[in-house]
Design a protein around this nucleic acid. Structure first.
Lengths: 120, 120
DNA sequence: CGATATACCTTGACAGGCGAGGTATCTTGT
DNA sequence: ACAAGATACCTCGCCTGTCAAGGTATATCG
């Protein structure tokens, strides 16, 4: 695994839904938006993206439609977040905040008494 | 998957190494320490723990030895973090800080102009 | 002497990430 | 006119980490 891939795992859906919350978008654009927002430090892989779209659509968090507007390049499949998806997003954000605290707590060190739980 | 399992994924090694940084310990105790430190909000599964130990030992981040001290219960296999492991831990902590920033950035929303990257 | 806590370990299934490969459209340079 | 490159989508199959389930052994306590 690469440096961040496993840490970012589990945030893929949250990221996508967050982008869609601001307005309908499509795969290629989201990919670029993510890369731009992180100054290229993180880039979602296409396979990961499309797998996530499928997952999100099947679970009813997003819906998709073909955009026939004349952009530069091929036809685009746009995604829109559903009401259900907005609720899911809220929960995912809460989960993230919670997880952050947990990991920070467990990762700072300074634990004592690991050796003998009997003493506690 | 449970709520946090996918978000915690990728932090397992960091957590274990952080505990060991404070002193040698063993599986069962680490498990309890983690549960205690998070007030039971998070509990590592045993299978996950022992898989991680194996991984960490094979990569040289920890070493193990049988403790024959008379604790309550069966014999314990203690783990000690190596010098190499300490370096790995430092990197993992940095990665975590970096990932936190990335996810926070991508998750806050407020992105605009998703629709047409051409405009940027 | 059986229940419970301590303590370790393995197997197999599952899910998400992603490398690799494929298809089609549109623009631009020569 | 045509090749190259950007835009844009999608699938297959492997890899890795998680974890439910199951197993073993020892010590303590009622």
């Amino acid at each position: 695994m690469s440096i961040t891939s496993d840490l970012l795992r589990g945030s893929t859906d949250t990221i996508i839904l967050s982008v869609l919350e601001a307005g309908d978008s499509y795969g290629y654009a989201i990919n670029k938006a993510v890369a731009r927002a992180t100054d290229g430090r993180y880039e979602m892989k296409e396979a990961t993206l499309y797998t996530a779209f499928k997952r999100l659509e099947e679970s009813g968090s997003v819906l998709s439609y073909w955009g026939d507007d004349g952009g530069a390049g091929a036809r685009r499949r746009y995604y829109r977040i559903t009401e259900s998806g907005k609720k899911v997003l809220a929960v995912l954000r809460q989960d993230w905040e919670e997880s952050k605290k947990i990991i920070d707590t467990l990762t700072k060190g300074k634990e004592d008494g690991n050796k003998d739980p009997d003493l506690h």
